[in-house]
Design a protein around this nucleic acid. Sequence first.
DNA 1: GTCTATAGTGCGATAGAC
DNA 2: GTCTATCGCACTATAGAC
Lengths: 199, 199
Amino acid sequence: MARTPAPGTRRRILTAASKLFSEQGVRAVGMQQVIDETGVGKSLLYREFAGKDELVAAWIRASDEEWWKTAREVTDPYQGDPVRQILALLGFFYDSVRSPDFHGCIYYNTSSEFRDPEHPGRKESVRHLRRLRDWLRDLGVLAGATDAEDMADALMLVVGGLLNNGEVLGGDGPARMALPTTELVLRQYCPTAVSAASA
Amino acid sequence: MARTPAPGTRRRILTAASKLFSEQGVRAVGMQQVIDETGVGKSLLYREFAGKDELVAAWIRASDEEWWKTAREVTDPYQGDPVRQILALLGFFYDSVRSPDFHGCIYYNTSSEFRDPEHPGRKESVRHLRRLRDWLRDLGVLAGATDAEDMADALMLVVGGLLNNGEVLGGDGPARMALPTTELVLRQYCPTAVSAASA
DNA sequence: GTCTATAGTGCGATAGAC
DNA sequence: GTCTATCGCACTATAGAC
């Protein structure tokens, strides 16, 4: 009889691609390296993904899904307290940046590697960052922010600064100031809610 | 006697390389494109620059020099008023990001494209960002900041967020909040100096 | 395996300054 | 015409997409 398709092939490829792409950058990694790392055959890889661009997009999409899962786990304990949820989220970013596996934010990095707005990997990356910004705005509304749009954009400044300086300047650099600066922003836009959360 | 060497060849190559690299990213641009854009011969290009890595490093170095020149022009009118100098500098960043020629910060982008700490282009990029951070710290000291190191790192968060979100999220996005957030940080670390500057 | 692209090398032809 | 800077092309080798 015919051999049954091995389960989880797609996942194995994505895991290997994720390691290589995030550590070295997408353009620095060839498809051959992905193949070598997985042990999968070339034909199987190309049956699973139409091309490199599609592999990149699938990697970003999978990372995005996993990220939201973790982000919700991190903020769920503070359900009903949006200010603490924001602080928990920024704390999660901070921990990620300080982790030894951190090699820069894949969404910012992939956007910078592919400037064509039509590139599937860029599209997915931009989509992720937009959703993050919108989530921060929604939390701001829940927190009764005086201006939730402004607050979300100010927080994206902190997030962008945290994620992009981490790999470049030392570990004791700007990252250290991410939480204090977040509190500064929160105090500006939700003074009453922050006092309550500090209590 | 002999033909005279054309002056400014190096500069012409750097100008073309700058356009291509900053618009499309370094790895997306081949040496042939640089050659086509300048009309220069391959042999001349390789006599002027040992290889692509060296061209990239030279481009970053030239951009860095030009940047400092402009940055000083922007802050010089506020000589003796470091708080206003910082605000002018952030205003300059803001204007750059909103300019139609902005295609992302070349220092952050090049760092993200080349992860090898030994890559000459990365080295120059990191050096630029470190010098910027140190300048902000020095201005913080002059402004009598309660903690100039913390303030510089907090401001680098704003700078990093501003420069890295600009190309990704819309023009009306986080960039808009860069100056208000800078003021927030300044007020936190130099309350008296900011009041004086606002007066 | 195949085809393309890219970094880098080298040489002959050409274009100018004298 | 002579001399040299520089171009343009051919070439190799390597790597990458598929």
